[in-house]
């Protein structure tokens, strides 16, 4: 199991679960990745507190009711220091300002919706 990467996906859209599971079905089947889903920033924080150091990668939406993705990012980077999890932000706003804010808060990468899974997979491979 040590080879398996655990990825936490944070998005208020419930359908992301099916989408990610289908898109990564081969990788899941072969045990390369394992996905966990949280539907709000708060839920994501709870998971991280309970399962410290489990998730190596966090993919988070920015626009969510309640705690926003950026706030989550800030909290993760402040509180979960060692080892620093990789956080990629995924948002519908592809503008430069949004990008800068995310980068300033410590985001490791920035992706826009509609999500291109080929690019996402390439980025994941680079993490190795």
């Amino acid at each position: 199991m040590s080879n398996t990467k655990k990825i936490l996906v944070v998005d208020d859209e419930q359908d992301v679960r099916i989408l990610f599971e289908q898109r990564f079905r081969k990788e899941i089947r072969s045990g390369l990745v394992n996905f966990v889903f949280a539907y709000s920033g708060e839920e994501a924080l709870r998971y991280l507190n309970q399962h410290e150091h489990e998730a190596v990668l966090i993919l988070s939406d920015i626009n969510m009711p309640g705690m926003s993705g950026l706030e989550l990012l800030k909290k993760i980077k402040q509180e979960h220091k060692e080892p620093p999890p990789v956080v990629m932000m995924i948002t519908a706003y592809g503008d430069n300002e949004n990008y800068q804010t995310a980068v300033n808060l410590g985001a490791d990468d920035f992706l826009t919706k509609p999500l291109d899974f080929t690019i996402l997979k390439e980025k994941l491979n680079l993490l190795n």
Binding site: D15, L19, A92, Y93, K113, P114, L115
Partner: peptide
């Protein structure tokens, strides 16, 4: 409009990706 952009990119994300993945399936 900004709200609309967000609202519209989300469903598009699913439309694009679900159709692509269905092809693979």
């Amino acid at each position: 409009t900004a709200g609309i952009a967000h609202e519209i990119q989300n469903p598009l994300n699913f439309v694009n990706n679900f159709s692509e993945v269905s092809q693979e399936l």
